[in-house]
């Protein structure tokens, strides 16, 4: 039957995670809440000037009857435009307790420099 070739899973639900973005002298810091996402489920990629984070969370309560469901198994996905200010080679990512922290260092040329007055 044709049905065997079709993927039986419904299309993935994509949810936009909430983020904080703050800028310091040396870097831009982005925090994204990704509850239920582990290291294996997280993907961060840069395409041109667009940075995309994508975290997959599986359904809970396997093998049990659901009494109440407010949490949706989904992919948390969000994209951001990164300017030339950011040194892409030095971007760091930390995932702890469902919170992703991305540290985007500013390239040396764009950091504030003190100019000595002689």
């Amino acid at each position: 039957m044709n049905d065997e070739k079709k993927d039986p899973r419904p299309p993935e639900r994509v949810i936009t995670p909430c983020v904080n973005i703050r800028e310091g002298e040396d870097d831009v810091i982005l925090e994204a809440e990704l509850p239920g996402v582990s290291r294996d489920g997280l993907e961060i990629s840069i395409d041109g000037d667009e940075l995309t984070l994508s975290g997959k969370r599986e359904a809970g309560g396997k093998g049990m009857r659901a009494v109440r469901k407010e949490i949706t198994p989904c992919v948390y996905r969000r994209s951001f435009i990164i300017g030339d200010v950011i040194d892409r080679e030095k971007i760091e990512a930390r995932l702890k307790d469902g919170l992703l922290t991305l540290v985007l260092p500013k390239s040396a040329e764009t950091r504030p420099r003190k100019i000595e007055i002689t």
Binding site: L34, P35, G61, M64, E70, K96, D97
Partner: peptide
Amino acid sequence: LEGTGGPRIDIYEDDENVVVNADLPGM
């Protein structure tokens, strides 16, 4: 979750246990 002022939860059960999951990232 709007209205409850608390985290999103799931409640599951089987013959042996009741399981509650709550989304509380970054705590």
